[in-house]
Each structure stands twice: as structure tokens, then as C-alpha cells.
């Protein structure tokens, strides 16, 4: 077994009497796409917030590349290679698309106490940003102010910004939230190209997306992880089926042509 890029041990978070996460264990292997699913209120958002560092867990540990980051603030985790995209689009609205991604690239380019040279003429940041935008399909839109872009483009830009920080782990919080069917297809195709290159932890509602991309799937129910299985096995899991019954139980049976459980899963 290779060493997990991201490892979560016994993560617990309560808000008063409400248990948001209880004793969650989980890991992401190099190059693996690990999806976390669960009905509404299962504690997925709380889970992501703790991984990113915006919430402090009550108990448990988070290891990034073997290093305990549980007590580190958001920006230090990011510099250790944890990049995230937000469920609700989070970009810099007054910047152009290129400048958003260049700003992300700048984050790992030493410190930014550089007061003189115009940011817009730092070529290596611009080139890196342009390359990432081209790869994700926004190359022709790079000079548009992001407040004038569409929702789908914002979703793409989110991912582009995360990639520009050369992450070890990508934390994708519902990457296709609010996207139409065609745009979702495009996003799946793009995320597929990232497979194997990054360790990806993905929170996702859309089962099509999950079954298209995930190597392993963990289900959260009432704050607890009830299963971690390969996609073809999770459909058979009794607890998962019970949690989804009446809600998305049918969806678990949806099998798309592209959904081929990865044989390279390293469990």
C-alpha cells in the first residue's frame, strides 16, 4: 500500500447537540479520485471545511502528505499543496480570467511582497495562467472580467485557479453544481483528464459525475462514514441503499457507458 496523500483519522465535529461529523476515517491515494456522497445534511460541507482549515475539528487528525495539518490555518495548508474549489463560485470578480489564474499561480511563486514591477507584466505567471485556461477550454475568454462570465465558465475558472497552485490534493466541492447537462459533460471530460495526475477528493451530488470519475466512493450518513467501496460495489451496500431509499436509491443504479470502475484502484 502506498502512502496516502491525504489521510483523515477519527474526524469529529459537533455544533452544540448536533453531530455534524463523527469519527470519520478516510484517505486519498496518489492519482486517485475519491468521491464523498451522502444525502443532504450528512455533514459533507462540514467535512470539507475541516479539511480546508476553515473549521477546527473537535477530535481527529488530518494528515497531508504524512504531515499533521490539523492545527494549521487555511493558507498554510494551501501552501502545503491542498487546493480547493468551492461549491458556490468563489473568484475575484474585478479581475480578468487570466488575472484570476495568474493570481493563483502567484500564490506559490515565492512571497508577494513585490512592490514595484507591474503584476500584469510578470510573464511566467501569465504564461502559466494562459496555458491552464487553454487546457480547461477558457483560452479565448482570458481577457474577460469574470463578473461578466457565465456560471459554467465560473465553475471552470474555479478549477483552473486550484490547478494553478500546483496542488498535491484537489478538494472539489460539487464541481458541477448548477451546471446544465452539456456543461456537466464537458466538466466530466475535463476532470477525467486530471485523473492519475492529482489526488482528488470530490464531494458531489450528481451520481452521473460520481460514477463517471470515482475510483472509490465513501458515503456519509448522519455525519458518519458508513461505507467506502469501489463504484460497482457501493450500489450493493445495504446501509447506503437505506440512506438513499426514496431519495436517490434509483440513481445508484444508473450506470453510464463511461462508468468503468478503475482497475488501478490502490486500496
Amino acid at each position: 500500500m502506498t502512502e496516502a496523500v491525504l489521510k483523515v483519522e477519527g474526524l469529529t465535529k459537533r455544533f452544540g447537540a448536533l453531530i455534524a461529523n463523527e469519527d470519520v476515517d478516510l484517505d486519498v491515494q496518489p492519482g486517485e479520485v475519491h468521491a464523498v456522497i451522502g444525502p443532504n445534511g450528512a455533514g459533507k460541507t462540514t467535512f470539507v471545511s475541516q479539511l480546508a482549515g476553515e473549521l477546527r475539528p473537535d477530535h481527529g487528525r488530518i494528515l497531508l502528505g504524512g504531515r499533521d495539518v490539523t492545527a494549521l490555518p487555511v493558507h498554510k495548508r494551501a501552501r502545503l499543496g491542498l487546493a480547493r474549489s468551492y461549491q458556490i463560485t468563489s473568484v475575484i470578480p474585478s479581475f480578468s480570467a487570466l488575472e484570476n489564474v495568474a493570481f493563483a499561480a502567484q500564490a506559490i511563486d515565492g512571497n508577494s511582497f513585490k512592490f514595484w514591477k507591474p503584476a500584469r507584466s510578470v510573464d511566467h505567471l501569465n504564461e502559466k495562467a494562459a496555458a491552464i485556461l487553454a487546457e480547461i477550454g477558457l483560452g479565448h475568454r482570458q481577457d474577460i472580467l469574470v463578473k461578466n462570465m457565465s456560471h459554467g465558465e465560473h465553475r471552470q475558472l474555479e478549477i483552473a485557479m486550484a490547478l494553478a497552485t500546483d496542488p498535491k490534493v484537489l478538494l472539489l466541492d460539487e464541481p458541477t453544481a448548477g451546471m446544465g447537462p452539456a456543461a456537466t459533460e464537458g466538466m466530466i471530460a475535463f476532470l477525467d483528464t486530471l485523473k492519475g495526475r492529482y489526488a482528488i477528493l470530490m464531494i458531489e451530488h450528481d451520481m452521473d459525475v460520481v460514477f463517471s470519475l470515482a475510483d472509490r466512493i465513501s458515503a456519509l450518513v448522519n455525519g458518519r462514514r458508513v461505507a467506502t467501496e469501489r463504484p460497482d460495489q457501493i450500489r450493493q451496500n445495504a446501509e447506503v441503499r437505506r440512506a438513499y431509499l426514496g431519495d436517490k436509491a434509483d440513481k445508484l443504479n444508473v450506470s453510464r457507458s463511461k462508468a468503468s470502475p478503475g482497475g488501478d484502484t490502490s486500496c
Binding site: 490555518p73 487555511v74 493558507h75 494551501a78 473568484v91 475575484i92 479581475f95 500564490a107 508577494s112 503584476a119
Partner: peptide
Amino acid sequence: SRFGRVIKACRDNERRAKSLG
């Protein structure tokens, strides 16, 4: 400058600036 870019980004979206590192 690059410093100014960070300051402006913090104005627009501090949370994002943090999560980028």
C-alpha cells in the same frame, strides 16, 4: 504590483485568497 494584486484580491474575496495560500 503583485503586492497590490493581493490587496485588491483580499478586498474582493479574502476567503479565496486564503484558500490559495
